[in-house]
Amino acid sequence: MLTRRHILTSATAALAGALLPQRLWGGSTLTLGPVQIDTLSDGSLVLPGDFILGGMPQQEMAEIVAKYGLPTDQLTPPCNVTLLRDGTHTVLFDVGSGPDFQPSAGKLAEAMEVLGIAPEDVTHVLFTHGHPDHLWGLLDEFDEPVFPAAEFVMGQTEFDYWMDPATVDSIGEARASFAVGAARRLAAIADTVRLVADGDEVLPGITARLTPGHTPGHLAWEIGAGGAMVVGDAIGNHHVAFERPDWASGSDQDGAQAALTRVALLERLAAEAIPMIGYHLPGGGVGRVEWAAPGFRFVEA
C-alpha cells in the first residue's frame, strides 16, 4: 500500500530527475580511507546584506566583497549538508531548512534522491547548531522525524539554549521565530536526543569541537585526526569571514566571541592543512584554508 511518505518520495524523485542537469552536489567530494563524504545541496538562502555585513567597516568591506563579484545589498549563500558513509553508518551533519523557512531552501530530499539514499537509511544526524537552515528540516508535515531510524546528536549547551523559554525574549525580535521553531522541533526529539560536550567522540573517528559565537553552543565536527572538519557556520562565508575573520558579523549571535572562534579555527585549519566543509561556502563547501595576510583565503577542492 502506498503511504503518504511514499507518495512524497516518489514525487521528489521525479523532481530530482528533472533537476539532474543542474549541479545538485550529490557526488563524492572527499574520501578518507573507507570514509566517503558527499555534500548535498539544500538550496540557498536569500538574505539582506546587512544580516551578514552590518557593523563592519563599510568601505573596506565593500572592497572585499566586490573582489568576489558580489553585491552588498543582498546575498544568496548556498546551503551544503554533509553526508558521511563509512560502510556501517550513514551520517548527516544538519538536516537543512525543510519547507517552512525560505522557498529557495529545503531541497535536501531531492539531493538525497540523486544518490539513491532514503530517509530511513540515515543512522545518525549530528547537528552543528539550531538555526532554521540547519534544524528545521528535522520534522515532516505530520511533525514526525524525517529520518525515523536516526540517532540525533546535539551539543548540550546548544540544546539547553534553544529549549530555554527565556531565549525567545532575549534573542532579539528578528530571531524570535528562530527560537520558537527550534524549541518546537527539539521538543519532538527531547526524549531521545544524545547530548554531548566539547571533545566527545560520538562515533568512531567523529569528535565534537565547541566553536561558540555564531550560537552559544555551536559545534564543528572533526572527522579522523585532522582528516576533515565540518565547520557549520563557524566560518560563514568565503569572503569577509576569511579575509577579515576578526570582524564581527551580523549573522553571529555573539559577534565578538564568534570572531575569536573564527580566527582560531582558521589558524588551525591552515597550519595543519585540514580539509574543511563549510555550510555556506561555494563549490559544495569543500576546500582548504591558506594564509593570505592579513587573513586567509578559501581554496575550493
Score class of each variant (00 low, 15 high):
Leu138Trp: 04
Pro275Ala: 06
Val196Ala: 07
Pro145Gly: 09
Asp140Glu: 13
Pro212Phe: 01
Ala234Ile: 00
Asp198Gln: 14
Pro204Lys: 12
Met276Ala: 15
Leu195Trp: 01
Gly232Met: 06
Pro165Gly: 12
Gly250His: 07
Ala234Thr: 10
Leu265Val: 07
Met229Ser: 08
Ser249Ala: 11
Pro148Cys: 02
Ala208Thr: 07
Leu269Tyr: 00
Ser251Glu: 04
Gly226Met: 03
Trp162Asn: 07
Gly224Arg: 01
Phe159Lys: 06
Gln253Asp: 11
Leu269Pro: 05
Ala197Met: 08
Ile274Gln: 00
Ile277Lys: 15
Val180Ala: 08
Val196Glu: 06
Tyr161Glu: 07
Ala228Gly: 13
His214Gly: 12
Gly255Ser: 05
Val153Arg: 09
Glu173Phe: 03
Gly172Ala: 06
Asp164Glu: 07
Ala174Val: 11
Leu265Ile: 03
Ser170Leu: 15
Thr211Ser: 12
Ala273Ser: 11
Ala149Val: 00
Asp191Trp: 00
Thr261Tyr: 01
Ile171Thr: 11
Ala208Ser: 13
Ala166Arg: 15
Ala188Val: 12
Leu203Met: 07
Val196Asn: 09
Gly172Lys: 06
Ala220Gly: 14
Gly250Gln: 04
Arg185Asp: 08
His134Trp: 03
Pro148Phe: 01
Ala174Leu: 15
Phe152Trp: 05
Gly213Ala: 10
Gly155Ile: 05
Glu267Asn: 14
Ala234Tyr: 01
Val193Cys: 04
Ser177Cys: 05
Arg268Asn: 06
Arg194Glu: 03
Asp200Thr: 07
His280Gln: 13
Ala187Phe: 00
Trp247Gly: 11
Glu173Arg: 14
Gln156Asp: 04
Pro165His: 11
Val180Ile: 09
Met229Asp: 05
Glu141Ser: 14
Gly155Met: 09
Trp162Glu: 08
Gly137Asp: 13
Val180Phe: 03
His134Glu: 15
Trp221Arg: 14
Ala179Trp: 00
Arg268Val: 03
Val202Ile: 07
His238Asn: 02
Ile171Gly: 14
His280Trp: 02
Trp247Arg: 08
Trp162Thr: 07
Ala225Glu: 03
Gly224Leu: 00
Thr157Glu: 13
Glu243Ala: 13
His238Phe: 02
His238Arg: 02
Gly226Asn: 08
Leu266Trp: 03
